[in-house]
C-alpha cells in the first residue's frame, strides 16, 4: 500500500516538475523579449572571461559581451541568464535553442562555421597558444626548447599545436599530460616539467598562482591562432546581426573615444560618426533590424566600450594583468577592427 502510494506520488512530482519549457518558433529576438532575458551560455570556469564571484555576480569578457546584448535589447544589462555549459554540450545547447548566445572562449574555426549550424559573429578576444618557462633556464625563444619536458592539459587543441610546432622546427620534446589545468600548473610549479603551455591569457592567469611568479617568463612565440568569439544559431539573420553589432558597437565606441562616462555628452558631439553610432539623429536601422536607434548608446552607457571591458576584466589592474597586445585597436597596431555604423 505505502509503496504503491510512494511510486504514484513520485510520478506525480516528476510530472509537476516537468513543466517543459517551450520556445516559440518566432525569431530569437521576439522569444528573448517575451522571456525577459537573454540566455547566455558561458564557461564559468575561465578566469577573466566568465566566473561568478563570492556573491554569485558574474564577471568577465564573455559575461560583459552577454550584458551588452541584454543592454541593447532591454536597456538593462542585468537581464541575462548565465548558463554554464561544458565544451561538449555547448554547440548542442545553441542548436536546440536552450541558449540564445554562446560566449564561452570558443575558437572561431572553419569546421565549426561550416558543419555545426552555428554562426560566429566576431572575435572578442584574440588568443593564441604560448609557453611559460622558469627564468633560470635562460631561454629567450621557444626555438631553444629542444628536448624540454612540457606540461599540457589533455584533450585540448594544445597537444596537437605543440606537436605541429616542434615537428615544424625539427625539435624534440617530452609531453607530460594532465587531466586538469590546475594539476598541470601545480606540477609545473614544483619543477616536474620545464615548460607549461596553454593559451597566453591562461598562462598569465596561472602565473599569478605560482609560488614565485616573478621567476617565470612567458616566451614571445604564439604558436596558434585562437580567435575567441561569441556565436549564435544559424538561420536567424536578425538575431545574428544584433549579436554581431553588440560587439562591433563596443569596438567602434572605443575607436571614437566614447566611454560609459562621457557617452551622454558625446551624444551632442559634432562628429557625424559618433552621432550615427549613438543614434543622435535619425534611426539607421529599419524594422528588420528590430531595435530602436539608442541601442549602441545603451551598450556603451551600461556596459562600456571594448577598452573599458578589457581593462575591467583582464587588464593591467586585474590579477590577470594582460597586455592589450594584439587585442589593441587597429589604429594602435592591434587587430580590433569593426565595420562602421553607417
Amino acid at each position: 500500500m505505502t509503496i504503491r502510494l510512494a511510486v504514484v506520488s513520485a510520478a506525480l512530482s516528476v510530472a509537476v516538475a516537468a513543466g517543459a519549457s517551450s520556445v516559440a518558433q518566432a525569431g530569437v529576438l521576439d522569444t528573448v523579449k517575451q522571456r525577459g532575458s537573454v540566455v547566455c551560455g558561458v564557461s564559468g570556469k575561465v578566469p577573466g572571461f566568465s566566473a561568478p564571484d563570492a556573491q554569485g555576480v558574474w564577471s568577465g569578457m564573455d559575461v560583459d559581451y552577454c550584458r551588452a546584448v541584454a543592454a541593447a535589447v532591454f536597456n538593462d544589462a542585468s537581464k541575462v541568464t548565465f548558463r554554464p555549459v561544458t565544451t561538449t554540450e555547448r554547440f548542442t545547447a545553441l542548436q536546440t535553442g536552450e541558449i540564445d548566445v554562446l560566449a564561452r572562449n570558443t575558437t572561431w574555426s572553419f569546421t565549426r562555421d561550416a558543419n555545426l549550424g552555428i554562426e560566429f559573429v566576431g572575435a572578442n578576444f584574440y588568443d593564441g597558444q604560448g609557453f611559460m618557462v622558469s627564468k633560470q633556464l635562460g631561454v629567450k625563444s621557444a626555438k631553444e626548447l629542444n628536448g624540454a619536458s612540457i606540461c599540457i592539459q589533455t584533450g585540448t587543441t594544445a597537444e596537437q599545436n605543440i606537436a605541429d610546432f616542434f615537428a615544424a622546427n625539427k625539435l624534440t620534446f617530452k609531453q607530460v599530460v594532465f587531466e586538469s589545468s590546475d594539476e598541470a600548473a601545480k606540477l609545473y610549479d614544483t619543477g616536474r616539467c620545464d615548460v607549461y603551455t596553454t593559451d597566453t591569457s591562461g598562462l598569465a592567469a596561472r602565473r599569478t598562482t605560482l609560488s614565485k611568479p616573478a621567476d617565470h617568463v612567458i616566451l614571445p612565440e604564439v604558436i596558434s591562432k585562437e580567435p575567441l568569439g561569441p556565436s549564435v544559431r544559424a538561420g536567424d539573420p536578425q538575431w545574428a546581426n544584433i549579436a554581431k553589432w553588440a560587439l562591433f558597437a563596443q569596438i567602434d565606441a572605443e575607436e571614437l573615444g566614447v566611454t560609459s562616462a562621457n557617452v551622454d555628452e558625446m551624444r551632442q558631439s559634432k562628429n557625424p560618426d559618433i552621432r550615427r553610432l549613438l543614434g543622435s539623429d535619425e534611426a539607421l536601422g529599419n524594422e528588420r533590424w528590430g531595435l530602436d536607434r539608442d541601442w549602441a548608446y545603451r551598450i556603451v552607457k551600461l556596459v562600456g566600450n571594448y577598452g573599458e571591458v578589457f581593462e575591467r576584466n583582464v587588464g593591467a589592474k586585474t590579477p590577470l594583468a594582460l597586455d592589450r597586445g594584439i587585442n589593441q585597436l587597429w589604429t594602435k597596431g592591434g587587430l580590433m577592427y569593426a565595420p562602421p555604423v553607417r
Binding site: 564559468g44 570556469k45 575561465v46 577573466g48 566566473a51 564571484d53 554554464p84 561544458t86 592567469a205
Partner: peptide, 21 residues
C-alpha cells in the same frame, strides 16, 4: 560534466574567480 554546478562544479567555478586564483 554536463554543466550543472553541484558541489564539485561550484568549487571549480570558485577557483576560477580571478580574485581567488
Amino acid at each position: 560534466v554536463i554543466g550543472l554546478l553541484d558541489l564539485i562544479g561550484i568549487i571549480k567555478t570558485a577557483t576560477s574567480d580571478p580574485n581567488w586564483l
